[in-house]
């Protein structure tokens, strides 16, 4: 006889029956409604007073392509500056030295507490406060010669980004188990060496995903540099519509380029997240 357990009577055998697929009427209905709305919006746009020929014509205009190149160049450079500052400020913030801690807090407070566009305008118009910059006797320069739209945009965006990055970096540094720091100390490392060799590399894995997000935001924030005459894509699109009055068409051109860039960066960002999000636990590269 088999070793199966004894069973009570009165329960039918369902093992040969299959579970029916649910029709999900609700979902179909919602889908149809949403598609209808999207189609209506699309139709409105197609029939609206937009001269799509202008969009096509200017989409790959040299000055627009140059603009998006300038956008990306500035985004990359400003992000690099922001990461550098962010690391330095985060380390200062976690320092036992109260002076360094205050300076770091002050920097973060100042540059997160004022709008980015305001900071850009201040950098660009620095010469109103300091007509010349330099070390008297060693080297001086006129502020306006130094503070080109490029430099003003780089400083404005980079230093602002640094304030936000420092918070991300700080969280990253704190996320590294204190045992790592102690193990580094136990083999005779000083604080900075331990940070550099042991803690920071591990923190980078944790901060890379949020930094990727910050970068995508920065790409769009570069559009603010248009008001200080940095020739990024929005600025150049504006110049075109100042001349031909095709405001919506040129804004669509600029918008499409931003969408393209962000659409490429977003899946890359998600890849980054997947590779590094569990980096600490996984160890390895």
């Amino acid at each position: 006889m088999s070793n199966a357990p004894a069973l009570a009577e009165g329960f039918p055998d369902l093992s040969s029956l299959k579970v029916a697929r649910e029709p999900h009427w609700g979902r179909w209905l919602t889908a149809i409604v949403i598609l209808a709305i999207v189609a209506a919006i699309g139709r409105a746009f197609a029939q609206g007073q937009i001269e799509w020929s202008y969009v096509g014509r200017f989409l790959t205009a040299p000055v627009i392509v140059q603009g998006i190149v300038n956008t990306m160049v500035m985004a990359v450079l400003a992000m690099a500056l922001g990461i550098l500052l962010g690391i330095v400020v985060a380390i200062m913030r976690l320092s036992p030295n109260p002076v360094l801690k205050s300076v770091a807090s002050g920097y973060t407070w100042l540059f997160r507490g004022t709008p980015l566009i305001l900071q850009l305008l201040l950098w660009f118009n620095l010469a109103l406060v300091f007509p010349t910059i330099g070390i008297p006797g060693v080297w001086t320069a006129r502020a306006v010669d130094l503070m080109t739209p490029f430099l003003a945009a780089l400083l404005g965006l980079g230093i602002n980004q640094g304030a936000y990055t420092s918070e991300v970096m700080r969280a990253g540094l704190l996320s590294v188990d204190i045992g790592q720091y102690e193990a580094a100390q136990a083999i005779g490392m000083g604080r900075l060496q331990a940070l550099r060799r042991i803690v920071l590399p591990q923190a980078m894995r944790v901060v890379l995903p949020p930094l990727g997000n910050e970068f995508i935001g920065l790409v769009k924030a570069t559009s603010l540099a248009s008001v200080i005459q940095y020739p990024e894509v929005l600025h150049n699109a504006e110049n075109i519509y100042y001349a031909n009055s095709r405001v919506i068409e040129l804004l669509i051109v600029a918008g499409l380029w931003y969408l393209l860039v962000v659409s490429i960066l977003t899946p890359l960002q998600m890849l980054l997240e997947r590779r590094f999000a569990r980096g600490i636990a996984r160890g390895g590269r």
Partner: peptide
């Protein structure tokens, strides 16, 4: 100061409960 303390630590090795190997 920190540098002198670090130097003094060189004479002791330490093995931790949670190993604390550098994962990277």
């Amino acid at each position: 100061n920190e540098v002198e303390i670090a130097r003094q630590r060189l004479k002791c090795g330490m093995v931790f409960q949670r190993f604390n190997l550098f994962p990277h």
